[in-house]
């Protein structure tokens, strides 16, 4: 007697996963927009301005979502419309693989591979490139070319950082060294000597400088470059599609900061202070968001307020030469430290 294939599907787990997925999507968008608002206020204060209210990005997103979506006559319409959806979907799915404080293991625990996260981090950028080329504007084409070059550039230091951490875990005999939960469970600070800590500080610096490149912010915003390309990649986007791209970037901000927290600043606040169970969960969640926000301040707001936009050639040089060298030096220091400690 043939059994119904449906009965093989674990409905309860699937339901919970779906719930978690929707919850995380809303969480990512809300915290991402909140981060954008906080970033705008922080930058404004550094520029001796008052800045918009913190809720301004929410209003902007709502307004854009309600607006008409214009597709240029010479754009490849289907690709042009699909790109923002792909960007947001990839950005949201990033969150499923990250250990976000408070909710314990990532939603897709056991499959939370750092290499997969690296790939997913690329997808919103790739979607913007595809959308830029599909929009049929020379400004967008130049922007798309620059975005590709930028992605290729920051990938080297970023991958070096991830590989260093995974290699370190493999030395410690961890079974899945690329698992982000394992990375978070074995913070580099507690397992290294002074040399390793120096290396990790260097790698943290590298990650902070990679962040604005990932998120298309000054000084690495040459693909959008308002005063040169009038918005570059996004020049033809409007209405809902533009809103989706902005939401994708907001969620990616959360994911990027979450990745940095997992690598460099893991640990729950409930392990330090004793609270009742539900409160401690919430406190951990808030603590995670606070840590992400602090890293965002250094990776996004501070750099954005303190620098001019770099040319694309300078971006390549900065990422490959300086940050690549810094990341490799960090790797060497951590390797040397591990060698000395573990023999």
């Amino acid at each position: 007697m043939a059994t119904c294939p449906c009965s093989a599907i674990p409905w309860t787990t699937l339901g919970l996963d779906l719930l978690a997925a929707f919850g995380l999507a809303f969480y990512g968008i809300a915290v991402g927009l909140l981060f954008c608002g906080v970033d705008r206020v922080l930058v404004a204060r550094m520029q001796s301005r008052i800045g918009p209210p913190v809720r301004q990005p929410f209003r902007d997103a709502l307004k854009l979502l309600a607006k008409q979506d214009l597709v240029p006559a010479n754009a490849v319409s289907a690709v042009f419309r699909f790109a923002p959806v792909a960007a947001l979907a990839a950005a949201v799915s990033l969150l499923f693989y990250l250990p976000l404080g408070g909710i314990g293991a990532p939603v897709f625990a056991g499959r939370d591979d750092a290499i997969l996260v690296l790939y997913l981090l690329l997808v919103p950028g790739l979607a913007m490139v595809v959308g830029g080329f599909a929009s049929g504007s020379p400004y967008a084409s130049i922007g798309a070319q620059r975005e590709m070059v930028t992605m290729v550039s920051y990938e080297l230091p970023l991958a070096t950082v991830i590989l260093t951490f995974a290699w370190k875990l493999s030395l410690l005999g961890v079974e899945h060294p690329f698992s982000l939960s394992e990375l978070a469970a074995h913070p580099v600070w507690t397992t290294s000597g002074p040399l390793g800590i120096a290396g990790a500080i260097l790698l943290l610096g590298v990650m902070l400088v990679v962040t604005p490149g990932e998120l298309g912010r000054i000084p690495f915003d040459s693909p959008e470059a308002e005063t040169e390309l009038a918005g570059g990649l996004l020049v033809e986007y409007s209405g809902r599609s533009l809103a989706l791209f902005e939401l994708a970037m907001a969620v990616k901000t959360v994911a990027m900061c979450g990745l940095m927290v997992a690598l460099f600043w893991p640990g729950d606040i409930s392990s330090l202070i004793c609270w009742a169970h539900p409160v401690s969960r919430l406190a951990d969640f808030a603590w995670f968001a606070l840590k992400s926000g602090i890293l965002m301040f250094f990776g996004v707001s501070l750099l954005r307020a303190g620098m001019a936009r770099l040319r694309i050639t300078d971006i390549v040089r900065v990422y490959w030469k300086w940050l690549g060298a810094a990341a490799l030096l960090g790797l060497a220091l951590i390797a040397l430290d591990a060698h000395l400690r573990l023999g």
């Binding site: 001796s48 000054i218 307020a305 001019a308």
Partner: peptide
Amino acid sequence: ELGFDSLFYL
């Protein structure tokens, strides 16, 4: 023009 808005405001 250089994208250095802090300097612009100051």
